[in-house]
Design a protein around this nucleic acid. Structure first.
Lengths: 152, 152
DNA sequence: TTCCGATTGAGCAACATGCTCAGTCGATAC
DNA sequence: GTATCGACTGAGCATGTTGCTCAATCGGAA
């Protein structure tokens, strides 16, 4: 489980290129036997190298074209309650606890600017939240990529 | 291409649960014919509803257990050059252009705190970058999810 | 009604899967 | 040097899946 070797990474890269490729196709692409790929895939799956496939679904076609980050300042000691309440908002995609002055970085999607205003209000209304700073994403200037880390 | 219907969303949810499920298995799960699922899947694929599968790969098993957000203040007009330079850093996973006082929110992974210090230094050294504020992620308190948006 | 797109079930050849087994290879151990 | 180990390979086989086409059905919109 330590760290993945070159072969695992090549397999991940091949999967990234075509997430529904068959085992046979992957084996051919990597110049490996079918058996090896099957074993490696099973090991990757078991070791938790794959996060949920939800991460690879674009929210825009669902009708949520706008994305924003809400930096939340929380009254100390209330963090877990606050997280629980924020998690109840459907438009919240993800949230990270942070070191530093911002306690919580919340990633949200919304239908339009008005919708964002409403969601921000919902977060601000949570008991324990002191202040929020909302930044609208103007675009994913570097689209998520793992490539440079896989090519090593 | 407008917005996806109930059926598309159910299909996405089923895929999220098992990203390598066969078409037959998906059809069974949703109570649909194999043909329908095959047609829908092809349409989703063609319409760009799937982002790269890279997004569903956990960087931790690759040897990058730490994640951080670097808020970057950029001298105006230099944004595209700065983005280009930052994109050359392999540990940079993603970056969003933001409205507000922070111009760029950069998501990075690293091996340890020392590594983060180095990467932050690399970003700060980019010509056009005025200032950075780095926050270490203490955990993904709300793990990425689309579920609440799919269940509507 | 008439048309339309979406869905269905059937059928078929080609292919993929899951499994097992015996053989090969290189590294580390003794 | 040779024993042992884990990883990889190629073969085989029954069963399941894919990609495709077709004709039939259904409900909604013109």
């Amino acid at each position: 489980m330590s760290t993945l070797d070159q072969l695992d990474r090549a397999l991940l890269a091949a999967l990234a290129a075509d997430h529904r490729a068959t085992v046979v196709a992957l084996a051919e692409r990597l110049g490996l036997s079918r058996n090896t790929v099957q074993a490696r895939l099973a090991r990757l799956e078991a070791s938790g190298a794959f996060a949920s496939f939800e991460r690879a679904i674009d929210p825009a076609p669902l009708g949520y074209p706008l994305e924003a980050f809400v930096a939340v300042h929380v009254r100390q000691k209330r963090l877990s309650e606050v997280v629980e309440r924020i998690a109840a908002i459907p438009e919240v995609l993800q949230a990270h606890g942070l070191s530093g002055s911002v306690d919580l970085l919340v990633r949200v999607v919304c239908r339009d600017a008005h919708d964002l205003f409403r969601i921000d209000g919902e977060i601000l209304a949570v008991d324990g939240v002191e202040r929020t700073e909302t930044s609208l994403s103007m675009g994913e200037l570097i689209p998520y990529r793992l490539g440079p880390l896989l090519d090593r």
